[in-house]
Write a protein that binds this DNA or RNA. Structure first.
Length: 581
RNA sequence: GUUCUCGUAGUUCAACGGAUAGAACGGAAGCCUCCUAAGCUUCAGAUACAGGUUCGAUUCCUGUCGAGGACACCA
């Protein structure tokens, strides 16, 4: 990456010039304004303080040394001191063309790296609750998790996706009770999650009037945990049918998760966890229950066993982390969980640290804001007021279909349908992946299903346009088409808009790398959006096919490079690209 | 009550402590005899408030106000 190369060059010059200051912490950044270079560094301002000199003078000195350095010769078109003491670097045209050619040669491999080789990242995402419908809240975890999974994978990490499903615990007592008294096997099997939700909602409704129900549900939970035959049988049935529904949605969303190890999977380990915590002196009895006291760390106590002896989600999570470390030797575990669980995860991480279950493992809560109902309040499954994912998808695809019918009526029904799915689902995914907000999102159909501006369809459309250029070109130049990108005369790209694109293409690998570092897929989304925007400006200002041959080939090559990078970025985000739309 | 996250154009979002706070939607005005107008161009429009740290603060610290979340037997 060029950024690191610049850092290296600066460091070498600084070490030679101000030997004792080579430990200085400085940065190489992307300037906001294009006029301020392709990269800039604050190194002079950092050093100026320690040297007690004017930052601008220090900058001038460093610049003149960099220009003398033969190694940096081919790299820059210009290096200059600017503003209060920034050093701005302008990449040479030759380097920019080299990079574009590299994109054309490497294609879908451009942007990948081996920086994560030998390291394992476990991504805990989706983590749905069995017997409850997937709603827009689960969508965020699923989509962000999948994107991070892809991003880390592209950087050479070994990535393990783990769907930590909620298939155990109290809510199953309620479900089992409801199923026993009001359920019908055939009806449930036909439409599993929907029917289970009905049972669940009914339970809560009746429990409000009849307080005994909660007690009866607890008994069912207890029986399940004690492996009562009938309850286990019902439980297995509910889990199986429920997963069938979930898998349908995963398939539609093109989400792939390596493992589905639910809470029940860890059940056997739980008593051991509590015993060990007790033996080590971290767990103790309090108000009849077992807690890990975190008072010393300013955290509330962490409840690991209930008064009635049953274990909780917390206990399971400790076991899960332990398992992930022992089984997969995870270097990093990412919990893609909404920020309402921030305190809980903090307690859990601290407990894991005390128990020593995950030494040398980075535990990271990748937070996101919750999706609230249109009234600005939390959705509640109990009241049955959530927006179901299935409905959202159906609506998005339907809207996309309408737009296609209008814009491109000539396509076959089959192709229209396919494009509608790609575009509709892309829009939904991109909506979540293009923002980094921790604030809660108030659910809004229009926003969710926007096909204009900064949206997946905009990016897909840009790719479709470029694809269309190539189709046209191929039809008119059959023989030459194959050879087009072998030796394009990229030096003919002299317009400002063309150079802007070349300059920006260099930064794609850095965008992917920072997305991983910050666990923020939106950095990739932001990058490809800006790239598409630059390209569309160019597209509207200059003819591509209607110019003389060599320039046409060069512009086609540039377009192709843009399409490759857009597609690579969208692929990381889990968004498909249609050929036409 | 304690605590977490957040407060940026009318709305939804950007901005490693950096240079002139960027977009999109919505509004106003333009661009299809020309490669896909799901596009492009132009205009209007914002850092909640008060202090502090810093050469430099939307960003860090303190306080006020506002929104949402969490706070022991749910997950």
């Amino acid at each position: 990456m060029i950024k690191q190369e610049i850092e290296r060059i600066i460091r070498a010059v600084v070490a030679a010039k101000f030997g004792s200051l080579e430990d200085a912490v400085f940065e190489v950044e992307n300037p906001k304004q294009k006029d301020n270079g392709d990269y800039s560094s604050n190194v002079a301002m950092v050093l100026a303080k320690r040297l007690e000199k004017n930052p601008r003078e220090v900058a001038d000195e460093i610049v003149s040394d960099i220009l003398k350095d033969p190694q940096s010769g081919g790299y820059f078109r210009k290096v200059e001191a600017a503003g209060p003491g920034f050093i701005n670097f302008y990449i040479s045209d030759e380097k920019l063309r080299e990079n574009a050619q590299k994109i054309l040669d490497k294609k879908e491999k451009f942007g990948r790296s081996k920086q994560g080789e030998g390291k394992t990242v476990v991504v805990d995402y989706s983590s749905i609750n069995i017997a409850k419908p997937m709603h827009v809240g689960h969508l965020r975890s699923t989509i962000i998790g999948q994107a991070l999974y892809n991003i880390y994978g592209s950087l050479g990490y070994k990535v393990i996706g783990d769907n930590h499903i909620g298939d155990w615990g109290t809510q199953f007592g309620k479900m089992i009770y409801a199923y026993k008294y009001w359920g019908d096997k055939k009806i449930v099997a036909k439409n599993p999650v929907e029917e289970m939700t009905k049972l669940y909602v009914r339970f809560h409704k009746e429990a409000e009037a009849n307080k005994e129900l909660d007690e009866l549900a607890r008994t069912e939970t207890k029986k399940l945990q004690n492996k009562d035959d009938e309850n286990i049988k019902i439980w297995k049935f509910l889990v199986r049918e429920s997963l069938k529904d979930a898998n349908k949605i995963y398939k539609i969303l093109n989400v792939k998760i390596d493992y589905t190890l639910g809470e029940s999977f860890y059940d056997e380990m739980l008593s051991g966890i509590v015993r060990e915590a007790t033996d080590k002196g971290y767990a103790k009895k309090s108000e009849g229950a077992m807690i890990i006291d975190l008072d010393n760390f300013g955290l509330p106590p962490f409840l690991v066993q209930k008064t009635d002896g049953a274990y909780l989600y917390a206990t399971t999570d400790l076991a899960t982390a332990k398992y992930r470390k022992e089984k997969w030797n995870a270097d990093k575990i990412l919990y893609i969980v909404s920020n309402e669980q921030a305190l809980y995860l903090e307690q859990m991480f601290k407990s894991l640290e005390l128990l020593g279950y995950c030494p040398d493992t980075e535990l990271k809560h990748v937070k996101f804001g919750m999706v609230l109902g249109e009234a600005g309040k939390k959705f509640s499954t109990r009241k049955g007021d959530t927006v179901k994912l299935e409905d959202l998808i159906a609506k998005a695809v339907d809207m996309a279909k309408q737009v296609i019918d209008e814009k491109n009526p000539g396509l076959s029904q089959k192709e229209k349908k396919k494009i509608a799915w790609t575009v509709g689902i892309g829009a939904i995914k991109y909506n979540d992946l293009s923002q980094n907000r921790l604030t809660d999102i108030v659910f809004n159909w229009d926003k969710m299903l926007s096909f204009d501006g900064n949206s997946a369809p905009y990016l897909q459309y840009t790719c479709a346009r470029i694809n269309s250029l190539h189709e046209k070109y191929k039809n008119e130049n059959r023989l030459e088409a194959i050879l087009t990108f072998q030796k394009p005369h990229l030096e003919l790209l002299r317009e400002g808009a063309e150079k802007d694109i070349l300059r920006y293409l260099v930064k794609y690998p850095e965008a992917v790398e920072s997305a991983a570092r910050e666990n923020s897929p939106h950095l990739v989304a932001l990058y490809i959006y800006n790239l598409a925007s630059d390209y569309n400006t160019f597209y509207n200002s200059y003819p591509i096919l209607k110019t003389d041959k060599d320039l046409m080939k060069a512009r086609l090559a540039l377009s192709e490079a843009v399409a490759i990078v857009l597609k690579n970025g969208l692929t990381l985000l889990g968004i498909d690209v249609p050929d036409r739309m």
